[in-house]
Write a protein that binds this DNA or RNA. Structure first.
Lengths: 225, 225
DNA sequence: TTGAAAGATTAACATAGAATTAACATACAC
DNA sequence: GTGTATGTTAATTCTATGTTAATCTTTCAA
């Protein structure tokens, strides 16, 4: 479902028609109030916002969407009337996922919509990690090495996920401590012990966890296995 | 620095002119080979690719850029000639950061370029450094010379980063001592020893670190060493 | 309520490599 | 040449992390 907020009847119909023909379900709104009402019930895959609107302008809507953590991941595309407006929107950079300037071609619109949705889907399904022999699927709480499923304790699991989410990048000790153990923690050997247990349980994949002395640990990326 | 690969002389000039007027440094290439050659020495902030090119098409270039982990984070913007082409590019979704359809307005081009670069700067707060054969990516803790990864100790690493952050400028001994070792430090040979170890480990890139007698050290910049 | 188990944490020690220092060498400015 | 700044080397000290086992905690079934 795509939500389109646009007060110009012609454009609204045009966009609805073009996207509908491509198989998208589109609900159009001419005023923001209606839009917000529907947002409370059904969340869309994508929101397309005109800038100039009665009652509340598109930028304000965008801002509210991105400030709310229930809606912040919904991709938003802005429709801009003039080049100068376009510039203003991108300049403010309030987190819109794409911008399209009026007048726009139908093909371009469709392509951009598809691209934005695809990108979004990709980041969501990014919830599966695979590095070498290690395979982790958080949604199902599956961790396996060379096809062999492995059991991890809660902290070990969290630790692994934090490292995986930054795959290839170093995560410093402090970040690990706060993300896995919560705010402040007296430095002790706890982290090291957990890293060790993780490495042991991961077996051959244990060497994927690299120590970066003085900083922290990282998993995958760069170096040799 | 922005790299633009476009074989149509008129468009290349137009884009160069438009972006130059906005303060961007643009280098244009009419054939991919030239582009690749320059990529080996200086990495740009952004690459703008036409799709139809002699020798190697834009999609292939895009693919190669995104497959190489040294270039994958460089934002890429595709120029597409027709709507159908536009559709094709976004459809393949090989990780381009934006698409712009010809004919395009100058304002839109500039806005999109700015938006892409801004987004990029935001995600990559830590930069990537490349001087000659030396390549450093702090976030991933990757240091390599001539493509060969190198291991540095913590202080050596810090020292290198401090120098790199001031690339081309001299960093005096005192600044180095305080930034790497913390407030006050009795003058000893420590710094020199670390500089030496760094130079040795960097191998051929070691000569990039120049001594500025009486002041400190600098990396890169005017080198007639 | 009690008592295994598993998990988390701490204590205690090991150890590889780093950092530092000392001691001397060299280069360069004056 | 003299003196000062930096280079070089090796010996010494130190530190971060690894490792193991003991001790706390929590959970949960009997």
């Amino acid at each position: 479902m795509i939500y389109l907020v646009e007060d110009d009847d012609n454009i609204r119909k045009l966009v609805k028609y073009a996207l509908a023909k491509e198989g998208f379900e589109v609900t159009g709104f001419s005023v923001p109030t209606e839009f917000w009402e529907h947002m409370r019930t059904v969340m869309p895959q994508l929101v397309i916002l005109d800038i100039m609107l009665p009652e509340e302008d598109g930028l304000s809507i965008l801002k509210r969407l991105k400030e709310n953590n229930k809606t912040e991941q919904i991709p938003v595309m802005m429709l801009t009337a003039k080049d100068s407006e376009f510039d203003k929107v991108t300049g403010l950079d309030m987190g819109a996922d794409d911008y399209i300037a009026k007048p726009f071609g139908t093909m371009e619109l469709i392509s951009r919509v598809r691209a934005v949705i695809r990108r979004y889907d990709k980041t969501r399904s990014k919830n599966i990690f695979q590095i070498g022999e290690l395979y982790v699927e958080p949604a199902k709480h599956i961790i396996s090495v060379s096809g062999q499923e492995i059991e991890l304790s809660y902290k070990e699991y969290l630790l692994l996920i934090v490292l995986l989410e930054a795959e290839g990048s170093v995560v410093d000790r402090n970040t690990l401590l706060t993300r896995v153990w919560g705010e402040y923690y007296t430095e002790s050997r706890t982290l090291d012990v957990h890293i060790r247990k993780l490495r042991v349980k991961l077996g051959e994949a244990g060497s994927l966890i690299q120590t970066v002395k003085g900083i922290g640990y990282k998993i995958g990326g760069g170096s040799y296995a």
